[in-house]
């Protein structure tokens, strides 16, 4: 399979997100430093913005439909969470995206997910690994859907201080869209979110 431009850009961004903070954190490990500690009941809000990358559609037999016929889109999301301990954060997220089609119509998706994160600490960095599960409202032209959505992902956050953290999210959006009336029209949407995020903990 030849990767298209959005795919290549997505992979490059993922590599940057994964390795750059790791290099910096390796240097940081040499210094004695305090560790951010979360305790039960602490909360956080996060606002994320960034590009939304349509990857590919796949049918329910596993065959890839090459083109989504969508352009690079945009994304914004708002997350609230409550810490269970130093590592676990549970919460909810609302995210909206837009992307333009070949026929110059906009597709919109609005996702509502429950989210659980496991946070790895390497002060002054945090690396949450998370999974969101919920519903996705899709609007395109005259058509609307409510679909299931799964959003696995990870983030890399630099803790500016006890309250504020900034970083990058990489989230995979998996949206199965079965169509019982005509099963051959059922497809699974695969998208990638790469967003900058600001997190406030209190």
């Amino acid at each position: 399979m030849i990767l298209n431009k959005p795919c290549r850009a997505a992979i490059l961004l993922v590599l940057l997100v994964v390795f750059c903070p790791a290099l910096v954190s390796a240097q940081a490990e040499e210094q004695p430093a305090p560790v951010t500690v979360y305790s039960l009941g602490q909360q956080s809000f996060a606002l994320s913005l960034g590009p939304f990358i349509p990857l590919f559609f796949m049918d329910f037999d596993g065959a890839i439909v090459d083109s989504t016929n969508l352009s690079l889109g945009g994304l914004g999301s708002l997350q609230w969470g409550i810490h269970l301990d130093n590592h676990w954060l549970v919460g909810a997220e609302v995210g909206g995206i837009f992307a333009k089609s070949t026929q110059e119509n906009f597709m919109y998706m609005l996702s509502f997910t429950a989210k659980a994160s496991f946070i790895l600490h390497a002060f002054p960095f945090e690396f949450p690994i998370f999974l969101g599960v919920g519903m996705d409202v899709i609007k395109y032209g005259a058509q609307s859907h409510l679909d299931f959505i799964l959003k696995p992902g990870f983030a890399s956050l630099w803790k500016y201080n006890v309250n504020w953290g900034f970083g990058l999210n990489v989230v995979y959006w998996w949206v199965p869209q079965p169509w019982p009336e005509e099963p051959s029209m059922g497809l699974m949407g695969n998208f990638l979110e790469v967003s900058v995020t600001a997190q406030y903990s209190f």
Partner: peptide, 11 residues
């Protein structure tokens, strides 16, 4: 109407 993803794939 066709489902959104299918309609997009056919555009």
């Amino acid at each position: 109407l066709q489902p959104v993803f299918y309609a997009l794939s056919q555009e």
